[in-house]
Every structure is written in structure tokens, then in C-alpha cells.
Amino acid sequence: MRGELIRVLSDDLEVVEAEGPKLDDRDLRTLYEAMALSRALDDRCRTLHRDGKIGFYVSSAGMEATSVGAAYCLSAEDWVFPSHRDAGMFLMRGGSAQAWLDQLYGNSDDLLSGRQLPNHHSLPSGRFVSISGTLGAQIAQATGCGVAMKARGDRSAVLVSFGEAAKAQGGFHTGLNFAGVFAAPVIFLCQNRRFATGPERPPERDKSLAARAVAYGFGGVRVDGTDILAVIKVVSEARERAVEGGGPTLIEAELPAAGDSTDPVARLRRYLELCGLWDAAWEEELSGRGRELLDAVVARAGATPQPAPDSMIFDVYAELPWMLREEQETLMQGCEPGDGHA
């Protein structure tokens, strides 16, 4: 009923799929470093949230293989329409841990000028698009971006990431329907953690999410989202298809449900160990470096002041209309004037 689950590594970490991605030792270690940093960053952010240092946080733990693996497959010209749990993707697209933390604190160094709830980053330098609070709003937008790429003749692709809750939204249908109609170069990546809000059909009456792609006229695949090699295999194939004019692909990455102990970071670590690419000394070095980095960026983010009060009124429009100029004056009575961007 749910179709084949694509895996490259078995539970015993044997390579069960000969057509896996071609990665050399250095690639594998780089991927592990990225996943480990993403996890360390997430651990630190959860602590900050628990300690009341930041007002909101959603964890990306368990999603490192999908987020890092998918981003690994993209080129710099590709675009990413992320969800708010894509810390791994943010780092892979060139975002710094400092930029991540500054956004969570909403401080005056925040690239977003403190405008958004934590986890709603944006990073134009990485073609990592601003994140909405409305689940699934980015899906049709990603399709439009792909349509524009195709119309311009650019050989690139769009990756849009969303959680399984978004599949209940109208925007999911609209985005996939438009993508099918226009054969847009889009990779739809659903990171399914199986904790969507709201009731669902029982499994025996539900096909996989990937199966829905058939109705839109393109392919859908299910992949083990804790197996970064499998993620890289399916996303690379989807990207190749998109760039070659083969249209979109829907990927459903199955992730550990709550209480499931399968950990994608530990999985890659054990695989590297089997391959002789991991030892405790390297792990110690990695975690030490991570700790040092995070100590520094957290200290700096926490010490950076809030944006100037009147920064609030900028970026509504390209230029300030009269109402906002008046409101700025009111706002700044008794305050030091700012330059608008903190």
C-alpha cells in the first residue's frame, strides 16, 4: 500500500543499494561534520529556549540527514524554499551559526532586523528564501520560482521543504498541480516526522504521500530520511530530472517518529566507523570545535542590543510613505534617532 522505501544503508549499515551516490571519504566526513554541527546547534538552541533566553524555538533534531543531504545535492544557483526546521539546510547554504543565533535573539545584527519569530530565517546569499508562518505557503511559490527559471532558460532547480502537516493545506495541492502543468523544475521534499497536527486516515486507508504525485503527472518516491546516502541518491536524481526538463518530483522522507530512537547522525557515525573514517579522537575534536563556536556566537548574540525602535517602520515599502514618516516621528519622541536598520 505504501510503496517501496528507498534505502542505501540497511539497519545493519550494509550498503544494500548498489546505485548509491558516489561519495569519497572526504565527502562523507564533510557531511558528518555538517550534521554534527546542525545537531550541536539545535541542542544549544533548545537549551536557550528552555532557559528562557529565546522566546520560541522548533527543533530540527532527527532531520539532519534530510536537511543536510538535500542541500548537499544542490548547486549555488538553485533556490531553496525552506521550512522552519531546516537548520541543516541554512548552514549548508552558507548561513553562519552567528546569523542563525542573531535571528533567534532578534537582535540588531539580525539580517531580518528582528522582524520574525525565531526559526523564520532568510538568507538571499544562499538563495534560501524567507520563511512564512503559514504552513505550506511556500509550495506554490517554489513552483512559480521554478516556472520563472524554466521560462528564462536557466539550468537550475528549486527545492521546497515542508513538514507532513502541510499536505493537508490547499497550497500543497495547488503548488503540485501547477508544477505538474508547467513541468516546473521543482523538488518537493516532505520531511515526514509523523506528528502532523490533526487527525489522519488510518494507515490501511492511506497511501503514502509520495503516491499522490501520480495524480499530478510526475514521480513520487519514499526514502528513508535517516539514511543520508539514500536522501542524496533521490534528491540528486530529482535535481538531475528537473534540470534536464523532466519536471518535478515529490519526495517523502520518512523520519523517526516521536519516541523512535533512530538517529540519523548516529547512523552516519556508525557507518563511518565501519568504513574506518571515524574515531573518538576526531569526534572529540569536532565537538570541541562546535562547543567553542557556539559559546562564542551565543555570547555575542545575547550581548547584541535590540534593534532601534524606529527600525520597525522600515521595509514595509521601498520608501517611507507619509503615514510611516509621521509614525516614526511619534515613535522617536524622546528616543535617539536610528538609521532605520538598527
Binding site: 524554499f81 506554490a140 513552483t143 512559480g144 516556472v147 497550497g171 495547488t174 503548488g175 501547477f178
Partner: peptide
């Protein structure tokens, strides 16, 4: 297709691009 959310949503992606 007949879907205003898709029309405006697609236009957003085009504008960003």
C-alpha cells in the same frame, strides 16, 4: 489552472526570482 492561491503564489516565486 483555476486557483487564485496558485496564481498569486506562483507570482511570488517569479517576483523573488
Amino acid at each position: 489552472p483555476l486557483a487564485e492561491g496558485g496564481i498569486i503564489g506562483s507570482a511570488v516565486g517569479m517576483a523573488l526570482y
